[in-house]
Amino acid sequence: MKKVLVVLTNVTRYPGTKDATGLWLGEATEFVEEMLKANIEVDYVSPKGGFVPLDPRSMKYADESIMQIYETADFQKRALASSLSPNQVNASDYAAIYYTGGHGVMWDFPDNKELQQIALAIYKNNGFISAVCHGMAGLVNIKDDNGNYLIAGKAITGFTTTEEVLAGKKSVVPFLNKEIAEQRGAHFKKQRAYSEFAVQDGHIITGQNPFSVRAVAKLLIKSMSNHIQ
């Protein structure tokens, strides 16, 4: 079975502020744990490659399972210290791409053409595009060969406006996930704030919030197992 490419942010703080952001740790580690249990290898990429910062707020939610992956030499080196840059990635090596969240991704995921090309190549090769929480920012500007938004007509989810308000970041973020998804023609789905929710529409799998990581991972594993790689 082919590998899964995990996408991480390089953004260290909310632009124009002193407030730190970065990868929401559990959105990477919980996904990776599920992949490892299914004997699926992962690689890590970020828009710039190299160092990946952690959102300090995510550490407050780091339970034992999150810490076990976080403390491995493999994760610390390949994910946090020396993530791949997009030009080091061969899309044909992967059965799926997974966009992690953390608010930082809203600034460096949407307009990265190289990551868009990688995702589209995986998708066109019968692979899967997946994301959780703010990671859906990586999907919003991907266009197909006809110039249409890939998520147009698709059911997707992501961090909701209500959750943004509860997180205290509604006035800081560059866009609201529901609004931009609907502008692109997607059908934005949601459930109660901070409850587990994942939705699959064909080869696109998305999760609403940090509590939806494992649900996304399990849908992806099931879908991958149903396809001959």
Rank of each mutant, 00 (worst) to 15 (best):
E41W: 01
G22Q: 00
L115N: 01
G168D: 11
L5Y: 13
S225P: 00
T72P: 00
F51T: 08
D145Q: 14
P210A: 04
L5V: 09
I151N: 11
S65D: 10
T29A: 06
I142E: 08
G168A: 05
L84W: 10
N177P: 01
L120P: 03
L139I: 05
Y99F: 15
S225E: 14
P110S: 06
N141D: 10
F188K: 10
D74H: 13
D55N: 13
Y194A: 04
V172D: 09
L84A: 02
G138L: 06
A167Y: 06
A20F: 13
K2H: 12
L80Q: 05
Q116T: 00
A198N: 06
I122G: 14
A131V: 07
Y149E: 02
S171N: 11
A62I: 10
K3L: 11
A155N: 15
K222F: 04
P53K: 09
G102C: 13
K170L: 15
N209K: 01
K113P: 01
A181H: 01
K218T: 14
G102M: 10
A215C: 02
D19M: 12
H187Q: 14
K37F: 06
M106K: 04
L220K: 06
L219I: 11
V213L: 03
E164M: 02
L23G: 10
M67L: 15
E196C: 11
L120C: 03
E163K: 05
D55C: 06
G158R: 11
N209D: 05
A131N: 04
S82W: 07
D145E: 15
E196T: 15
N148V: 03
E179V: 13
K189M: 13
V173R: 08
S225T: 08
Q191F: 05
K178I: 08
L139H: 10
Y98C: 00
A38V: 07
F211C: 01
E64N: 08
F197Q: 11
M1N: 04
H134W: 10
T12P: 02
P15K: 08
I221D: 09
V6Q: 13
V105A: 14
K169Y: 01
L219S: 05
Q208H: 03
D93N: 13
T29W: 13
V172R: 13
F31N: 06
G26Y: 14
L25V: 15
T21P: 02
S212Q: 09
A167F: 10
Q183K: 15
Q76A: 08
T160A: 07
W107I: 04
V105G: 12
G101F: 08
M224G: 09
E71F: 14
N90Q: 08
P47D: 14
K48Q: 14
A38S: 14
E164P: 02
A155T: 12
M35L: 15
D43C: 04
A217I: 00
P110I: 08
V213R: 14
Y99C: 04
E30I: 03
K170A: 09
I69K: 11
K154D: 14
A81G: 03
A186Q: 09
D63S: 05
Q68G: 01
T100F: 05
L150G: 12
K18P: 00
A193K: 04
L150N: 12
E163G: 05
V173C: 11
K2Q: 10
M136T: 03
